[in-house]
């Protein structure tokens, strides 16, 4: 994976404003941003490590701890909030036995919150990887999670495929 990162760095080394795209690609490669990768990025882009770490810490999309196979983000935008997003979040916390920002012990799911995915008409929504699930009620959660558990077991190595890819 580090070799893959080196290829990316060679391509981006001279481009102005490359840091954030490079971090985004690195996170896609590793699933998170390990320190070795950050150090290599800092070196290749000729930036102090502190600056790279500062950028990583600033943006909520970057994570320095490994995440589960599927990232669940519960929308807490206004429309979802007034339509019960908070209840969905607490149901997920108890179903997965994790807090926001944590990963289940089997590494299947990580739980996070989001700020509006722009699907307010279907509130409350949750996003699992790139799929948006609509009108989620706490009672609907087991079924939704099951699809991904099943999926995670089936395709351990290949990249996640959402319903999008079928169209």
């Amino acid at each position: 994976m580090l070799a893959q990162l080196d290829d990316v760095l060679r391509e981006y080394a001279q481009a102005p404003g490359a840091l954030i795209p490079v971090l985004q690609i690195a996170q896609a490669i590793f699933g998170y941003l390990p320190e070795t990768a950050l150090k290599r990025i800092a070196q290749a882009l000729d930036k102090p490590y502190s600056e790279v770490a500062g950028v990583v810490g600033f943006y909520s999309f970057f994570t320095r701890v490994p995440r589960g196979k599927h990232l669940i983000r519960v929308c807490l935008g206004t429309a979802c909030y007034v339509r019960g997003g908070k209840e969905v979040l607490s149901a997920l916390k108890s179903a997965l036995r994790v807090e926001v920002g944590e990963t289940t012990s089997d590494r299947t799911f990580s739980l996070d919150v989001g700020r509006c995915f722009g699907a307010c008409g279907l509130a409350p929504v949750i996003m699992i990887d790139d799929d948006v699930h609509q009108r989620v009620r706490p009672t609907k959660l087991p079924k939704i999670l099951e699809q991904y558990r099943h999926h995670a077991a089936e395709t351990l190595e290949s990249a996640a495929v959402g319903p999008e890819a079928q169209s």
């Binding site: 102005p16 404003g17 954030i20 985004q24 500062g54 950028v55 600033f58 943006y59 909520s60």
Partner: peptide, 24 residues
């Protein structure tokens, strides 16, 4: 260029910093 999850980047000078590869 993709945002990286920071609301403040909607502010124009912050957005510019973000494209430049800095903290937004």
């Amino acid at each position: 260029r993709l945002g990286a999850g920071a609301f403040v980047c909607g502010e124009e000078t912050a957005l510019i910093h973000s494209i430049e590869g800095e903290r937004g």
